[in-house]
Simulated assay, not measured.
Amino acid sequence: MTALIIAVAACAEKGSGPVLSTGDRYLSGSPAFDDYRLGVGDRIKVTVFNEPTLSGDFGVAADGAISLPLIGNLPATGHTVAEVIAAARARYADGYLRLPKLSGEVSTLRPLFILGEVSSPGSYPYTFGLTAMNAIATARGFTPRANHDIVRIRRQGETEEVNYRLTPELRVYPGDTVHVGERYF
Rank of each mutant, 00 (worst) to 15 (best):
G39M: 11
S28C: 09
R25W: 00
A65P: 07
A32R: 15
S28P: 10
F49P: 10
G41V: 03
A65R: 11
Y36K: 12
Y26R: 02
Y36C: 11
D63N: 08
P31A: 13
V48C: 11
A62D: 13
D42Y: 01
S55E: 03
V60D: 00
K45G: 12
T53N: 07
S30A: 11
V40I: 15
P31V: 07
D42I: 02
K45E: 15
L27I: 07
G29D: 07
Y36V: 14
K45W: 08
D34T: 13
K45M: 13
E51C: 08
T22H: 12
D57I: 07
D57K: 12
F49N: 11
D35Q: 13
I44V: 15
L54I: 07
A65K: 06
R25N: 01
L38I: 08
D57L: 10
E51T: 05
L54M: 07
G56E: 07
A62E: 04
A62I: 14
L38D: 00
T53E: 06
G23Q: 02
K45I: 14
G56Y: 01
G41F: 00
G39C: 11
T22D: 06
L54Q: 03
G59A: 15
V46R: 01
F33C: 08
P52V: 06
G59Q: 09
S30T: 06
S30D: 14
V40G: 08
V46A: 11
G41L: 04
A62W: 06
N50K: 14
A32T: 05
D34L: 12
G59N: 09
R25C: 01
F58I: 09
D24R: 06
F33P: 12
V46I: 15
R37G: 09
S28N: 12
L54H: 04
G59S: 14
T53V: 05
G23M: 02
F49E: 09
P52S: 05
Y36I: 10
D35H: 09
A61V: 05
N50Q: 11
R37V: 03
G39I: 01
V60A: 04
S28W: 08
L38P: 00
F58R: 03
V40R: 10
S28H: 14
F58N: 02
V60I: 14
I44W: 00
G23D: 04
G64C: 09
G59W: 02
A61S: 12
A61K: 01
G64Q: 04
D57F: 08
Y36L: 15
G59E: 13
A32Q: 11
A61D: 10
P31D: 12
D63V: 04
V40H: 10
V48I: 13
N50A: 12
V48H: 04
